[in-house]
Amino acid sequence: MPPPLRPRRRFRQPSVIPGFGLTLGYTLTCLGLIVLLPLAALVVRASGLGLSGIWEVATDPRVASALRVSFGVSALAALTASVFGFLVAWVLTRYEFPGRRIVDAVVDLPFALPTAVAGIALASLYAPNGLVGAQLAKLGIEAAYTPLGIFIAMVFIGLPFAVRTVQPLIVEIDREIEEASATLGAGRIQTLTRVVLPPLIPAVLTGFALAFARGVGEYGSIIFIAGNLPYVSEIAPLLIVIKLSEFDYGGACAIATIMLGISFVTLLVINLIQAWSRRRFGYV
């Protein structure tokens, strides 16, 4: 955001605090060398194909279908994670029940558990001869090695994002407003939908976007549980790995660049939601 209009536009507003040059320089150097330069190498490599070349890769039926699987399943998983995440966040902040602290700690498990570990654990649970898979098989549902398996893994890794973005805001809801609403004759449902929920929507959307972005890129936990069938259960990151082992660097970079572009847009959307919410509700 540009600073408010001042007589002379300056790069930085004056301050007595020292260390601006040092810390910003260090930050930019690290950011440049570790993140931006290597990412630029990727874009440069992909741009060797030209825009039409990238478009050709993106519209190749197999690539298009992998992107569709990644983005489609991830959107569904993020939606599920958002709904249940909201529920979990609500229950954790509003209700008193035994083991609340433990449940609260458990929510962060997917952050801390390595994805490969999650992958083999989920695969052995949901395989047709696994603990849960066997029960599902009785109902005629195949979980592992189908898009449903991808969905399960993505819900797993996306859930903490959904919970942790909404939770602090539920904590801060002013109870008095709810009381006022109730006093004025609104039923509980009305109070919830008209008064409590609207200010939470930006946070829910942010949580959704984060879970979505994470799910799209996820690799470790999915390859163990997805069937990896082209056109059915092949995800975009796996296709990058496949392209690499076919020595098709251009193709791999093109898919990676497309995914990178979409992640960047997702991040931008998150920032816009938050900017909007700051204007609308005065906080994020």
């Binding site: 930050t27 950011l31 190498a41 490599r45 984060l210 994470r214 470790g220 995914m259 992640s263 960047f264």
Partner: peptide, 22 residues
């Protein structure tokens, strides 16, 4: 700047490896 610092979060791990290979 803040968005750029966030970027690695939403980059697929496979892509994170790939860029160093490149």
């Amino acid at each position: 700047l803040v968005t750029l610092i966030d970027l690695p979060f939403s980059v697929s791990p496979v892509v994170s490896g790939l860029i160093y290979v490149l």
